[in-house]
Nucleic acid binder design. Structure first.
Lengths: 225, 225
DNA sequence: TTCATTTTGTTTATTTTATCACATTCTGTT
DNA sequence: AACAGAATGTGATAAAATAAACAAAATGAA
């Protein structure tokens, strides 16, 4: 698979393609063109073709794309067939919700263990995932190859835990804390899920629309005057 | 406040600015320059100045930006002072976690009520938020002005609930379901929190790095040979 | 007060991203 | 088998985003 430097925007669109392809599969659709895909995703056909062309040639002229084939190609590009191993740090509300509800295996991940400080959760098992003490975390990481860590600890613990993780060979962090982890000289890959950022963007768009409405109303009023 | 068409990228950076400004405030820093801000956020000073200039002039030459002032300006741009009202639909694991852990008021939102179908949660109160039956949702929306709905229902309910919400005047949805809500002829504002998209992006970056490592190792081996 | 230094806001240049356009190639029907 | 229609992959073009450059203005020390 070719993989020259691919832009971030392209990468962010890939999971959406995957989701749409799964949806089409579920509907029994086995063939799709870039223009149909574009219509359903709000993108131009051209952009879709160019996105895929970063990784190879997956379509066929005069026909389009075979949905299952394209789906598996996109999955491979995203690394879903690599069976990455993950641990979860912090079995609070969000951590617990992730263990119970987020189907890691659907996305090619294996959640092998969870860690927490609270004695009342340590030793329990949720959804087949054992909860261990954070005391055991360093040893666990040394003994079990772990690709990513899901960080769902309280704010104050975020930085020290991150340091611990990176020291013990974890090279990627899926960050659910509201803390900016990106340290200057660190090479760890961080993917943030900042709820507040998302909500504030929404807040902006709502405000924008309300202001537009108000402006329209003001113009109307002036006209009547 | 000036507000010509501002690009999406700019808007997505605003919440990060806010977060960093809060952090600086907490550290007792009251003054910051675009270059310092840029260093801490991994952005160029130029970009930061240009971003702010979309909305007005908040800095002072030779001095930089007054942290509390800039903070409140950014907050105002994002609409945090508009006291938007929100309802939550779906008190499952993720919905529950949001009620308990996500501090809506910190971001200028007021979570007024939650709705669910399950008889065992209807009638309960979590964190001062009453859980009502979805049966009551239409009437509630008609009687209580509601700006945004937090959608945390199971997959199958996503589309019908969205329709219900928009019919009753909700104009924005914060979507935690894994379903693509963006319908062609709908004018509702949707902000998605797709965990899986985020994880798959991370998966891509990890794969990319592993491939690079493997390629380097292969080159090394060939050199020794 | 004066003046070197700092730092902004904005204009201009550069780079990146998205779209267009089309030659090429496959499909499927007659 | 032949051919009209469809749809890809890609090189060229347009648009958008980022970075650089700089004039204007405020700071703060001598």
């Amino acid at each position: 698979m070719k993989r020259l430097k691919v832009s971030n925007n392209v990468i962010r669109r890939l999971p959406r393609y995957l989701r749409k392809l799964d949806e089409l599969s579920a509907q029994g659709v086995s063939r799709v063109s870039s223009s149909e895909l574009g219509k359903q995703l709000g993108l131009t056909p051209s952009q879709i073709r160019q996105d895929f062309s970063c990784f190879g040639e997956f379509g066929q002229q005069g026909y389009g794309y075979h949905v299952p084939t394209l789906r598996s190609q996109v999955a491979a590009i995203l690394g879903m067939d690599r069976n990455y191993r993950a641990v979860l740090i912090g079995v609070g509300n969000i951590g617990h919700a992730l263990i119970d509800n987020f189907c890691f295996s659907d996305w090619g991940f294996q959640l092998t263990a969870a860690f927490d400080v609270k004695p009342e959760v340590v030793g329990t098992v949720f959804n087949k995932v054992p909860v261990l003490s954070v005391e055991e975390l360093p040893q666990y990481l040394d003994e079990h190859e772990t690709d990513i860590a899901v960080l769902a600890v309280p704010k104050d613990a975020a930085i020290p835990v991150t340091r611990l993780l990176t020291v013990h060979g974890v090279e990627a962090i899926w960050n659910f804390t509201n803390v900016e982890l990106t340290e200057p000289n660190s090479s760890v890959i961080v993917e943030n899920v900042h709820f507040s950022d998302s909500l504030l963007s929404l807040s902006y768009f709502v405000s924008e629309r309300q202001d537009e409405k108000a402006a329209r109303a003001a113009r109307e009023a002036r006209r009547e005057h």
